[in-house]
Amino acid sequence: MSVGRFIHETLPSRVLFGVGTLGGLPEEAERLGIKRALVLSTPGQAEQGLAVCDLLGVNGAGLFSGARMHTPTDVSEQACARVRELGADGVIAIGGGSTIGLAKAIALRTDLPQVVIPTTYAGSEVTPILGETENGLKVTRRSLKVLPETVIYDVELTLGLPVALSVTSGLNAIAHAAEALYAPNVSPVVAMIAEEGVRALVGALPRLANDPANVVARSDALEGAWLCGICLGLVGMALHHKLCHVLGGTFDLPHAETHSVVLPHVLAYNLEVVPDARNRLARAVGHADPALALHQLAARLGAPTSLASLGMPESGVADAARLAVATPYPNPRPFVEDDIARILSHAWAGSLPSVL
């Protein structure tokens, strides 16, 4: 093994993982000094939000159930107004990336402590990254102010997650680890975490798709998502995430589904020039061609494999490529507009991923 130089940083966070861990929420809120918590959810998870309010008892100030995909800034401002109205001194988010994103947006503006309770495999709960959308553009920023203080992973809360969302959410998490493997600041620790996160999810998703109530499969998937989220929080992302942010913010495409469609095509483009990342992913997915393996996994489990099926117009391919190269992320291969347009064309059509 060659001697290398690297920098590895860790993030300050507290994680409760297991079955029934939601019951520890009141103690976690008390530990953070939260006496009047604003609970956050999407409209569809308002019932779960109300259950959290009940669990908090007198320390629950109320519920804001208006979280929306891609964290629109107008929704964040509405939620902050609710914080002021109720005199809330902390936020508790239950749900997926939309709700967790809203909690982060509030923390950015108020510096209030957060407890987040993920019910999907999004992974953003362990990152200091916030993506907000305004006027059709999604902007990503990094700040420790948005890193949740406590994350409660309760496997029981994922048992009712529909299989379709479980699969796309899991593929979204895999994208975090896959791009971490070729990040400029990847360390050996992050590489090991990323490989194990992908391995856990690739193994768990078919099992939970076959038996959604399989607690062991759900636990493996949630642990894999946590590991992949750690990667997202520790190193920078690349072309795949840039494209998904552009597509989500500009065309309002569903977040997890967009990741599941785009990832194999970006990997086919990038992995040719990063052999170590390719080898690690190949081990994790059990296939010499990780891009093809992930495309086939998505198709086999019923996830969308084309941007067209998500409602993106074919005419948007050129616009998305132009927006992507305007503010590129670090990437193993250059941000070349024609190449990116071809990647997006293949993703739009649902073609097999191929090397450009």
Rank of each mutant, 00 (worst) to 15 (best):
Ala341Gly: 05
Arg31Glu: 12
Leu281Lys: 02
Ala291Arg: 09
Glu47Met: 00
Leu56Ser: 10
Val336Gly: 07
Val202Asn: 10
Arg36Tyr: 09
Leu247His: 12
Leu281Gly: 08
Tyr153Glu: 06
His245Thr: 15
Thr110Ser: 11
Leu32Arg: 09
Ser98Tyr: 12
Glu272Gln: 14
Ala191Asn: 00
Ala217Asp: 07
Leu307Thr: 13
Leu130Thr: 02
Gly62Met: 09
Ile343Tyr: 06
Glu132Asp: 03
Leu201Glu: 06
Ala225His: 09
Asp339Met: 04
Gly131Asp: 12
Gln78Ser: 14
Thr120Tyr: 02
Ile174Thr: 13
Met69Ala: 00
Ala293Gly: 00
Gly23Phe: 11
Leu55Lys: 13
Ala122Lys: 07
Ser219His: 05
Ser354Asn: 04
Ala308Tyr: 06
Val355Ser: 14
Ala326Met: 08
Asp154Lys: 02
Glu337Ala: 09
His295Cys: 10
Leu147Pro: 13
Ile7Ala: 13
Leu297Ala: 10
Ala164Val: 03
Val317Thr: 10
Leu271Gly: 02
Gly131Trp: 00
Leu301Gln: 12
Asn279Phe: 00
His259Val: 11
Gly96Val: 06
Leu86Met: 13
Pro188Arg: 01
Leu294Ile: 02
Ala180Arg: 10
Val190Met: 07
Glu134Asn: 01
Leu171Arg: 13
Glu27Trp: 07
Leu144His: 12
Asn59Ala: 15
Ala324Phe: 11
Cys53Pro: 01
Thr99Glu: 00
Ala103Ser: 15
Tyr329Ser: 10
Asp74Glu: 15
Asn210Gly: 14
Pro118Met: 04
Leu38Ala: 08
Lys35Ala: 05
Ala29Gly: 15
Gly90Trp: 05
Ala183Trp: 04
Arg36Met: 09
Arg68Phe: 00
Leu11Gly: 04
Ile94Trp: 06
Ala103Gly: 10
Ile94Phe: 01
Val273Ser: 15
Glu223Gln: 05
Pro128Val: 02
Ala277Trp: 07
Pro188Glu: 01
Val91Asp: 07
Thr140Phe: 03
Cys231Trp: 08
Asp154Gln: 03
Trp348Met: 01
Pro330Lys: 04
Gly197Asn: 08
Ser260Cys: 12
Leu243Gly: 10
Gly57Asp: 12
Arg322Lys: 13
Glu134Phe: 09
Val266Leu: 06
Trp226Gly: 03
Ser260Leu: 01
Pro184Leu: 11
Glu337Tyr: 05
Ser354Cys: 12
Leu22Asp: 10
Phe6Glu: 11
Gln48Thr: 11
Ser2His: 07
Asn270Ser: 15
Pro188Ile: 01
Ser306Cys: 04
Gly236Lys: 12
Ile340His: 09
Ser98Gly: 03
Gln114Leu: 04
Leu161Lys: 03
Ser351Ala: 15
Ala37Tyr: 01
Arg109Pro: 01
Thr150Ile: 15
Arg5Gly: 12
Ala217Pro: 14
Asp54Gln: 07
Leu232Met: 13
Ala277Leu: 14
Asn270Gly: 08
Leu16Val: 02
Ala221Tyr: 00
Arg14Trp: 00
Leu22Cys: 11
Ser166Thr: 14
Gly90Lys: 08
Arg333Phe: 08
Phe6Ser: 15
Gly18Tyr: 08
His295Thr: 10
Asp220Tyr: 05
Asp319Val: 14
Leu102Gln: 10
Ser315Lys: 12
Leu171Lys: 05
Glu179Ile: 09
Asp252Arg: 15
Val58Arg: 08
Thr133Ile: 00
Arg333Glu: 01
Ala308Trp: 06
Asp74His: 14
Val274Lys: 04
Leu130Met: 04
